[in-house]
Design a protein around this nucleic acid. Structure first.
Lengths: 354, 354
DNA sequence: TCCGTCCCGGCAAGCGCTTTCCGTTGGCCG
DNA sequence: CGGCCAACGGAAAGCGCTTGCCGGGACGGA
């Protein structure tokens, strides 16, 4: 059917072994032969048969990236960075890896299914992003699966996700985001401005990311002696704008006297802003709002959103390099990616007591 | 190394052929045998070797999706819809396809490279999204490549992208977005409100999408006898917010008396809004703003953005079904996806003449 | 001049699966 | 009760590539 290695070999007057070696480049071939082979490849418009190659070599040039939601820029930025690092269609030559972006929708089942699918493809590496769903059964299943992948030679990188099962990094390399610290600094910033009644809008309670950010927030409150009542001021939803909108209204109902709302991510924060506006409240004059992640739109929202910057692009690129085995594993298998408070216009001192 | 079909066969006391048939499901196998095989699969924790399978079957279960920018929700929504349609990690059984999302960054070279990579993987289908870069050499190269893919049995679907080379659909199925009509209706809407000096901010001039939307816009202007001066009121940039911001400032410099700005997409429109605000102009009292695409954030921007809705989710799902061969090819190989004007708060009659 | 080395390239054995081609068996009809 | 058909399962031939092993030639040192 299609052109095969043998066809190229015949045309270039060499054996198929030589053609293979020219293409893979990991064996000395004289310049003359190489040129002849490459010309034949060109003339015949030959394209390597990936599956055959993967079968023989026992590894494919696929790299899987698991994300909770492709349509969310948070993951899009990471995925994009990983992709351009692992090849990105630059050369098309060998060594070029193909990114398989898998949309788990945050479901542990789909996550497992995709991991199996990637295992089936003999993926060269797998990058897991986003917080994991907590719960012993899931954690154990995922850890086991990752262990099997690693055993089969697949590199495993966790990007912005705690080590599976919270135990020492197992076979995976982990780039941990400093969610706890970032959230704590954010809340400290609000406290420093003088806020005392701070609402907190976050995502599903069973996500590690959710928990870590909440812990940071609570830690800051605890230090300020404001832990009492924190429960009432916390609303769980999902990590999207609509959820933020609803949660803000709910908070306003529970505590009409709050002066600030911190959101567990920027997208939620935008929903919160919309809700406040619809209630006729000004930001930040009446209520301060803060987000998390520092997605591109946050800087030029109106007002510019105070948030915590996570260097997603850099983290993704590093994850990509780790996946390619081009960067050394950090000591202990875990590197922490620091987060930075970005104080902007959406936070200000609370209004004077009426 | 890993568990193979033969191992499973041995354990289940059948031949490897039978195991293969049970797993692929396209051959009658008695219930008893099937159960025995499945148990063995389970006990041995067997995972099919994808490459080997693809080699023998001459097709893989990979589906490529080419997008200009993963981090852009426009593409994220389409990609996500395609993915959930082609498998989405639901069952993990057979028939489950894996989506390979490729980020071309709008570069024709990378597009070609990715197509080659997908061809190498013997992808079952390829979905190209977004506007194509115009220019004879690119168009020809892409058309040729798509032809070769189709010849090799890969299904090709163009989603929101004109048929390659603008000629009859070749081997590809096309879901064409009604960019021209949508843009025309949008501008008509502005004209109907009374606007006469309408700025237009768009993307790279060499993209089909850009051209089609611009043509629709111009058609409306022509009908109103306002074509003169349209050139001066048009600014090309890229499809992002920053570009929209700059372009709006540029427009304001050229024609401080304009009363409306139409953008070629919502993201640009947001940048335009930011620029207008920074210039102290109110939307829509001083200047009306309109976008295109109706991305999720547009409905609850402040003010809610008037735009043209493109049913991206539905289009992506349909593209996914076409890629799976689960939906019949539309007559002529081309189906047009209609667009709808969403008149919202960001457009209003122009201010009274001072 | 002869031999040891080093390069380079060929041979051929798989990699693990799919699928064609048959053989076997049991059920059913005549 | 015999023969035929349908349904099922096995044997084996590849799919196209990689790579270990080996051989031949060129070159340099002795």
């Amino acid at each position: 059917m299609a052109v095969t290695l043998a066809d190229v070999a015949a045309r270039a007057q060499v054996s198929s072994a030589t053609v293979s070696r020219v293409l893979s480049g990991n064996y000395p071939v004289s310049e003359a032969t190489r040129a002849r082979v490459l010309r034949a490849v060109d003339e015949l418009d030959y394209v390597l048969n990936g599956p055959a190659s993967a079968l023989a070599a026992a590894t494919s040039d696929l790299v899987g990236i698991l994300v909770n939601d492709i349509a969310d820029p948070f993951f899009g930025i990471i995925a994009s960075a990983v992709q351009s690092e692992i090849g990105g269609g630059q050369r098309g030559g060998s060594g070029e890896k193909l990114a398989v972006v898998c949309n788990t929708g945050g479901s542990p089942e789909r996550e497992l299914t995709y991991l199996t699918l990637l295992q089936r493809q003999r993926a060269a590496a797998v990058v897991l992003t986003g917080g994991a769903v907590e719960g012993p059964e899931h954690a154990a299943a995922v850890t086991a699966k990752l262990g099997r992948l690693a055993a089969a030679g697949t590199r495993v990188v966790l990007c912005g996700r705690p080590p599976a099962g919270e135990e020492p990094a197992s076979a995976a390399v982990t780039l941990a985001f400093d969610n706890r610290g970032g959230a704590q600094r954010l809340t400290e910033h609000l406290l420093a401005l003088g806020h005392r009644r701070i609402g907190y809008v976050t995502g599903p309670a069973d996500r590690t990311t959710t928990r870590h950010r909440l812990e940071g927030h609570r830690a800051a409150l605890a230090t300020a002696g404001l832990l009492a009542g924190a429960e009432e001021l916390t609303v769980h939803g999902s990590y999207d704008r609509a959820s933020g909108y609803d949660a803000a209204l709910e908070l306003l109902r529970r505590r009409p006297d709050l002066t600030a709302i911190a959101a567990a991510n920027d997208t939620i924060a935008l929903g919160v802003c919309a809700a406040l506006r619809d209630r006729g409240l000004r930001i930040p004059q009446d209520v301060s709002v803060a987000g998390f992640d520092d997605l591109p739109f946050s800087a030029d929202a109106v007002p510019a959103l105070t948030t915590v910057r996570l260097p997603l692009q850099a983290a993704g690129a590093r994850a990509g390099r780790l996946a390619m085995g081009r960067e050394a594993t950090p000591p202990g298998g875990v590197a922490t990616i620091r987060s930075d408070l970005m104080a902007r216009a959406s936070t200000a001192p609370p209004p004077e007591k009426a």
